[in-house]
Amino acid sequence: MPHALFRHPRGAQVDSALAVKVCGPSRRKAAGEQVAAPRLSDKLTVDQVCAELGIAKSSFYDWRQKGRAPRCIRLPNGALRIRRSDLENWLADCEDRT
């Protein structure tokens, strides 16, 4: 069975098999399928983490420099985010050390 051609948004015709190979499967949802939106609360800002821990931002950055802070994600704009799960795991590890 020949692959269907579809028109790329920039006007070129593209073979559907090649598009799947290069771009991955379509992310469109099927009829009736629910697509879960990423939850913003899963990732915290440094300010939110500091407020939750009751510490100054300078303390957080000191811990980070010394390798004692929870694992962080650096965004393309340079901002840091901390996954809620990483923070909870880090807190559990801190409890275990005491």
Rank of each mutant, 00 (worst) to 15 (best):
R64P: 01
R71S: 13
R71L: 13
S58A: 10
A56Y: 05
L53A: 03
G54L: 01
G78H: 00
L75S: 00
R74V: 07
S59P: 05
G54A: 00
A79F: 06
P76K: 14
L80N: 02
C72T: 15
C72D: 12
R68W: 14
L80Y: 04
K57Y: 01
D62Y: 08
G54P: 03
G54M: 00
R81H: 06
S85K: 15
K66P: 05
L75E: 00
R81F: 02
S59E: 11
S85D: 14
L75N: 02
D86M: 09
S58I: 02
S59T: 15
N77A: 07
Y61S: 09
F60T: 01
Q65C: 12
G67K: 10
Y61D: 06
S58N: 08
R84E: 09
E52D: 11
L87Y: 11
P76Y: 10
S85R: 15
K66F: 10
R68K: 15
R83Y: 14
R71Q: 15
G54H: 01
S58E: 05
L75H: 00
L75Y: 01
S59I: 11
P70Q: 07
Y61F: 15
E52Q: 12
Y61N: 08
L53K: 04
P76C: 08
N89P: 00
L80S: 03
N77G: 07
R74K: 14
I73A: 10
I55P: 03
G67P: 09
S85Q: 14
S85P: 01
S58W: 01
G54I: 02
N77D: 15
R68H: 15
P70L: 06
G54F: 04
I82G: 05
D86E: 15
A69N: 03
I55S: 02
L53Y: 04
R64E: 10
E88Y: 08
S59W: 09
E88W: 07
C72W: 07
